[in-house]
Design a protein around this nucleic acid. Structure first.
Length: 490
RNA sequence: GGCGCGGUAGCCAAGUGGUAAGGCCGAGGUCUGCAAAACCUCUAUGCGUCGGUUCAAUUCCGACCCGCGCCUCCA
């Protein structure tokens, strides 16, 4: 069964297939603008794309997928941030690039094979603009900026189905002018390919045939996609808000420049909603990973966030609340127990059983649901259902479970390690160790006292100490041969 | 005004022309000094409202109500 994915352009499910002779599936995903920490809405999109990447690799082979995701490191926002902080642009974007990478790693998102930057591809962008100028799809305005002439491209609006005329009406009705560039453009719909240098841009300008300036936002993806994946790519993805104008403009630029189809397939993931609205600073409902880390404290596990972000269908808006994390946390906990039980009872049959055992079909429903338009809720439903129905004894079930987890990109904290465990990456987060490290000495002392009292069957004292610990925000959990401490659940 | 999406149990959320996956919460049970954990069981005669088509509609069609997004260099 081929991977079926909704195509935003043709508006129907289509199978994903590589089109180039080398069999490599070419996949471009619009990345972040690096001027601030990404919020969890951004990460919803990146998690969706991460699962897609993992699914593609499962389908075509790890060496048959090329995933490119750009970094926008020069635009109004990055420049403004650098100016406000009185720092060089490159320093600011470097800082936020590193933060982005750290957050992605925490969420277990695989790095793309190529992560090109806009400032690293000025030449490629200039070259494309040059072709567009020569072909008559672009013009230079009085101030030295270069604009794409939307009326020169018949198919403009095919993706967003927004007709040029309606666009103008819309602009007029909303009473908002396209402020900065409005005066120089021949038509409201035209968009900047090259922005002439302004005072506020500072040093952030490059030479071009049209004078000093910097590239417009849209051209970077066209240029970098072309350079790293070729003129026709197999899939282009991003958040819905990029559908118009960003992706519409990319199609116009690339197809006018190259004369061939730009992307064979378009895919857009929907927004994460918080309090029923799209996240925004002005509404005060914007969460970064660090915001959630602060709220959750020492029990914070980024996998809970990943799981929470996967609760809804990627093409539908998803409601996120703090309760979502709690819900995901509990669900993840049950997966942990299942995984431990499976590892304990599914006795390895040889020195390296994983290499000779075939995964069972127990968790195929997970993969099948993902292949069916990335149906996350259905896939997770299958995961939990199959978990409950599993006999807990089969080694091939263990392999099947691990394969399902890998595609979902879920890392499961585990107390049990098999001697031949090749899943170091998947069990690297040792919950116990993390938690023990975070326990203050005073708490440990109280817990020891309570344990002693319990062994002496002095339950009154033991219960009093448990209460005291609870008051301090810690719960004590008795185990078979001891106890463990955990921060009290909220 | 244009374009698009959605309204399913307390919350989140799949799905189907033939009678509602899954997760969380809640309830009961087993276990346990207690608690927790774990495990088991239960929890929508109903899928925004009103019509229509049909042997049969939550699922198709129409109208209406409500919510959200894009039309601003927002994932």
């Amino acid at each position: 069964m081929a991977i079926q994915l909704f195509d935003s352009l043709e508006r129907k499910l289509k199978p994903l297939t590589p089109s180039h002779a080398d069999g490599v599936f070419r996949f471009y995903n619009c990345g972040p603008t690096v001027y601030a920490p990404a919020h969890i809405g951004n990460f919803r999109t990146f998690v969706v794309n991460d699962v897609l990447r993992r699914l593609l690799e499962l389908e075509f082979g790890a060496d048959k997928v090329k995933h490119v995701r750009n970094l926008t490191d020069v635009d109004d926002k990055t420049i403004r941030r650098a100016r406000e902080e009185n720092r060089p642009l490159a320093e600011v974007t470097q800082q936020w690039t590193e933060k982005f990478h750290a957050d992605c790693a925490a969420l277990n998102c695989l790095p793309p094979h190529v992560e090109p930057t806009a400032t690293g591809h000025i030449r490629e962008q200039v070259d494309m603009i040059d072709v567009l100028m020569k072909k008559g799809n672009a013009y230079r305005a009085a101030d030295g900026s270069v604009y794409f002439k939307v009326s020169s491209f018949d198919r403009y609006g095919a993706l967003s189905r927004v007709k040029e005329r309606e666009l103008q009406i819309g602009s007029a009705l909303s009473g908002k002018s396209h402020a900065a560039d409005a005066d120089e453009k021949e038509d409201v719909s035209d968009f900047a390919l090259w922005k002439a240098h302004k005072l506020d841009d500072g040093d952030n300008a490059w030479e071009s045939p049209w004078g000093r300036g910097r590239p417009g936002w849209h051209i970077e993806c066209s240029a970098m996609s072309k350079k790293h994946l070729g003129e026709t790519i197999d899939l282009h993805t991003g958040g819905v808000d990029l559908l118009f104008p960003h992706h519409e403009n990319e199609i116009a630029q690339s197809e006018c420049c190259n004369g061939v189809q730009f992307s064979r397939h378009w895919y857009h993931s929907e927004h994460l909603l918080v309090d029923g609205k799209k996240m925004s600073k002005s509404l005060g409902n914007l969460y970064t990973l660090d915001d959630l880390r602060k709220i959750e404290g020492p029990v914070f596990n980024p996998m809970e966030i990943r799981l929470a972000l996967m609760q809804g269908h990627p093409r539908k808006q998803l409601s996120f609340t703090i309760h979502s994390i709690h819900s995901a946390s509990e669900a993840l906990g049950s997966l942990c127990h299942f995984y431990d039980a499976l590892k304990t009872f599914a006795k390895p049959s040889g020195p390296n059983p994983r290499s000779t055992t075939t995964p069972s079909r127990q968790f195929d429903g997970v993969i099948d649901s993902l292949k069916s338009d990335l149906n996350f809720p259905a896939a997770l439903g299958e995961l939990f259902r199959a978990t409950r129905e599993s006999g807990n004894t089969s080694e091939s079930d263990l392999l099947a479970f691990e394969r399902a987890l890998r595609v979902l990109g879920l890392k499961i904290p585990s107390y049990v390690n098999l001697p031949d465990d090749d899943l170091a990456e998947d069990v690297s987060q040792r919950m116990t160790i993390q938690k023990i490290n975070a326990i203050p000495a005073a708490i440990t002392t109280l817990a020891e006292k309570r344990w002693t009292a319990k062994l002496a069957k002095d339950f009154a004292t033991a219960d009093a100490l448990r209460k005291e610990l609870a008051g301090l925000g810690w719960s004590i959990l008795d185990r078979k041969d001891g106890y463990s401490l955990e921060p009290a659940k909220k």
